[in-house]
Each structure stands twice: as C-alpha cells, then as structure tokens.
C-alpha cells in the first residue's frame, strides 16, 4: 500500500478497525464513500462467518425437515410424481396394528434405556467413585462404547443363539429353565436387545454422572456428614438433586436415542420375527426403503419427531423449573 505513495489514510480505509482518526484529516466528500463501505462490511462480516454453518444447517437440516413434512401428505414411490393425499398417511399409521406394536416396543425401549443405561450409569458412578481400582473398572465398563452398533449387534447375536454363550452359561450354572431362544419371541427379543444396547450405552452415561459428581462442592458433603447424614441421605438429598442438570442431559439423550433405535434392531432381527420387535424407526425405514411408501414413512417420521420434541421440551421445562427453585 505504501508503494503507491498514497497517504496513510487511504491505507486505513481498507481496514475497518483503524478508520476513526484519519477520517478527520480528509475532506468529507472523499471519505464518505469508503466509510460507508467499511461500515457495511463491518456489519456483514460476522454474518459471512456464520454463512457456511447457516447453509449447512439450512440445507441439510431445515430443508430435510420441510421436505419430510411435505411428503408426509403425499403418496410417493420415488418413481412416479408425488400425489397429495392429505392426512391419509397419518390415519393409516394410527390404524395400522404394526404401528401400534412398534410404538409399544419403542416405549419399552425408552423405559429400558432409562432403567439400564441411565439408572445403571448413575449407580455405577456413585459406587465406583469410592472404591479402589476404579480406573480399571471404569475403563472396562466404557470399553464397549468404542464399538460400532453393528459390531455390538453381531456380538450379541452370537451370544443369544440357542447354543450361544448365554444359554450355555445358564445350563452350566444349572439354570436350564432360564435358557431360551432370546431373539425369537416377543417381548423377550426386545428386552434382550435393550440389554445388548445398554452394554454399550452404560459407559458413556456413567462417565457423565462421574463428571457431575465431581462438580459437587466437597464442603457440602462434609457439612451434611457433620450434620449426621448417612450414605443414603447423602445420595437422595444432596448428590441426586445436585446432579439434576447432568441427569437432564443423560435422560434426554437416552430418550432421544431410544426413540431413534434402528441399527441394532435392524442387524439383530430386522424387526422380526413377524415384525414382533419392530420399533418406530424400523417401521419408518421399512415403509420408505422396502415398501417404497415415502409418504407413510414421512408421516411416521413426523409423529416420531413430534413425540421427541414434546417430551424434550416438557422434561427440560420441568427440570429447569425445579433447578431454579
């Protein structure tokens, strides 16, 4: 910039952060235009930084949501133009006994996911916090989390075969009556898959609870102990209430995850036998990519999303309200 012999003020005009002082040294007419450009640039600049993220979110997320909503009101098989059918897909879904069964199975998944990974994760975190050798145990419990769902499903498919590890162990322990074909009959197949899923999900929720426990000020615990609080009172009256924010995160993640349960079921049973272990996400996938009923699948997706959104908002509101009290 200096090479052209221009005064410093011109150099400054290209830099929006250094334009205050020199402007006064120039005539108003010559300065007004670059100043406006600078001001405009300054206004736009932050949005330009946001633009890539906005395009990504808008293009990949919002467009998909709008598109799914739109096709849920149509009959569309991908090869012929979509035909508007109003609410028919929603009516078909609600009347379909398989949808009802998938919905029930999804609720079982949600309950199971709250009980095992969330409840179990909390229990492990509280217990492991105080015992020797906790590092090794924590690592062992977390280890399955690094496996992909497909690998987990493949491992547990073998575990659950009639002559698999589980049945053989039960027979070895003299518990023959408990040995059974785990993935064959409902609701055992769904419960068995929840256990397989929890094996992987337990570690991450335990870690989150451990982080939560570490944020509790030790003086609070000490004060309670001085007041004569035992372990049970410490847990129910001090630790659990103070863990509320982290519990909210774990619960929300777990519930959303269980409503989206697809891959594990798809690999282990494909929702069968006889659609007995189908979840809503599997129903959605089957309708879209096996039956080519994109509209019906879109309706299931919208219903699924609505349930998750309503639950998340209600739960967060209730939790945050209690936290604020």
């Amino acid at each position: 910039m200096q090479a052209g012999g221009l005064p410093d003020t011109n150099q400054v005009s290209t830099d929006p952060l250094r334009n205050e002082v020199p402007v006064t040294a120039l005539g108003e007419a010559s300065v007004e235009t670059p100043t406006r450009a600078q001001a405009l640039l300054r206004k736009i600049e932050p949005y330009l930084y946001l633009l890539p993220a906005l395009l990504l979110v808008g293009g990949l997320l919002l467009y998909s949501v709008a598109h799914t909503l739109a096709i849920s009101f149509t009959d569309w098989d991908l090869i012929t133009p979509p035909r508007f059918v109003g609410l028919q897909n929603y009516i078909d879904a609600v009347r379909d006994p398989t949808f009802t069964r998938s919905f029930t199975n999804t609720l079982v998944w949600t309950g199971g996911s709250l009980l095992l990974p969330v409840g179990g994760g909390l229990l492990l975190a509280v217990v492991l916090e105080r015992i020797p050798g906790q590092r090794v145990l924590k690592t062992l419990i977390y280890l399955p989390a690094i496996l992909s769902t497909t690998v987990v499903a493949a491992i547990w498919s073998y575990v659950y075969t009639n002559n698999g590890v589980l049945n053989e162990t039960l027979r070895w322990a003299g518990l023959d009556a408990l040995a059974r074909p785990w993935l064959v009959f409902a609701p055992t197949n769904t419960l068995a898959m929840i256990v397989a899923s929890s094996w992987r999900a337990l570690g991450p929720s335990m870690v989150l609870f451990l982080v939560g426990l570490q944020t509790i000020p030790p003086e609070l615990i000490e004060a309670a102990k001085i007041d004569g609080a035992g372990e049970r009172i410490l847990f129910w009256r001090i630790k659990l209430p103070l863990l509320r924010p982290i519990t909210a995160v774990v619960v929300i993640m777990s519930v959303i995850g269980s409503f989206m349960t697809f891959d594990l079921v798809w690999v282990m049973t494909q929702g069968g036998p006889g659609r007995s272990s189908e979840t809503l996400a599997v129903t959605m996938y089957r309708q879209a990519f096996i039956m080519w009923r994109m509209g019906y699948a879109g309706a299931v997706a919208v219903i699924l999303s609505a349930i998750v959104i309503v639950f998340s908002i209600s739960y967060l509101r209730a939790t945050l309200k209690r936290s604020a009290l």
């Binding site: 498919s157 075969t161 009639n162 002559n163 074909p181």
Partner: peptide, 8 residues
C-alpha cells in the same frame, strides 16, 4: 433346525 439355533 430350531429358531435361534444360529445367527445369520
């Protein structure tokens, strides 16, 4: 074979 005898 019995259902569940072998995986896939």
């Amino acid at each position: 074979s019995q259902p569940g005898d072998f995986s896939d």
